[in-house]
Design a protein around this nucleic acid. Sequence first.
DNA 1: GAGTGGTCTAGACCACTTG
DNA 2: AAGTGGTCTAGACCACTCT
Lengths: 236, 236
Amino acid sequence: MVKGDGSDSSVSWQSIRDTMMTRIRAQDYAPGELIPNEVDLAAEFGCARATVNRALRDLATSGFLDRRRKAGTRVREAPRRKATLSIPLTRAEVESSGARYDYRLLERAIETPPPLVRETLKLSGTERLLHVKSLHLADDVPHMFEDRWIVLETVPAIETVDLAKTSPNVWLVRHLPYTHGTMEFLAETAGARSRHLICADDDPVLTMLRVTWLDASPITFARQSFSPSHRMRLEL
Amino acid sequence: MVKGDGSDSSVSWQSIRDTMMTRIRAQDYAPGELIPNEVDLAAEFGCARATVNRALRDLATSGFLDRRRKAGTRVREAPRRKATLSIPLTRAEVESSGARYDYRLLERAIETPPPLVRETLKLSGTERLLHVKSLHLADDVPHMFEDRWIVLETVPAIETVDLAKTSPNVWLVRHLPYTHGTMEFLAETAGARSRHLICADDDPVLTMLRVTWLDASPITFARQSFSPSHRMRLEL
DNA sequence: GAGTGGTCTAGACCACTTG
DNA sequence: AAGTGGTCTAGACCACTCT
């Protein structure tokens, strides 16, 4: 059958996805049980198998279905839900809340890495690293303090960048996409950072550790500590 | 051309994706610039347009490309990277670290919600909520303290569940998938929770707030506080 | 061995957007 | 008006894995 042949018969993969999602929620298909195969569903919906495939693939990616060749498609008993954190570019994060963003370079030096950084980035210890401390503000109020190490062997070009104008993160995002990395959240006391964040030494602050790699080469280690009241929000 | 016709000519969408990714990284296609359209790329790779489409759609989903009808496909200047946090089922999280998981129900009561919960869940204040406090342990060491409110109007069935055996979260995941929700991370001082987490009152703890909904109906509000040394890890 | 999902093709129409 | 991506179809072969 051809679209536009007058029968107005085409079915969208989204509508199939939605229908199947409704059935899963209503437990028309019991958790853990097989659902009909693609050929049968295509017959039911009156569409091509590829269209059903697209819909079910989407639900599998979303974590509601488990698909295996020959074994068929099952409803996951405990949906593997994922939260996606669109990685905050600090400027966008601040401005989206309606505040004016400001960035200040506090320190810039080329040093050999301390043990924590050396081990995390799997360095020998003799490498030259660019060490940058900076403060990010929202409406002139301290928002986040960043302490970052950048491996010059991996990113030589950043040595000549004027980091008073461009924050290291912005420069890196634009010039050196990473291949993979990790992010960790933890709670710490502000300690020495209290001076920049304008809070008490023993205030709890949310800290985000980020490490990124370009294949096997370490790029950067960043410790970003947010002002005490800050919350990191994710949509589910 | 047909697969298996002896010419061994089929090209996978993954290989096209990888090739295009390499070109993006190498800046063969400059950031912000148009890349060739699907028809031209299909000709170059010697495959059907649908195959190119699948590859480029994947890169767009991953945040490296921006696609618009008529306007064409552009390389994103600042890749919109996403971190995915596979939502931790506490038991799996603990056991994946090799520790033995344990769960203890501390308190269970049916109450009217305090202001914070009422406002967050958009309740009138007269609803009956199930209020549950529990402790999750790893090798008998406190790992996470949870204070949770569950809206009985939305989830009446949970009133008769033996929550000493099944944690509220496990029950909810299995019986009532949510449609959407939010998650927030913040740093707090342990305060009264120190008794359960076995730490000092002023130790900083990482707290995760979770609110979930079934369409317009509020399901639950949970405040989970992790033991002081804990880090929440995400892969990039 | 056989059933199921994964993918590719060639062609077509459609939807959106820019010029 | 026209170019580009988005999607659907019908058919085919393949890869995986369960029995």
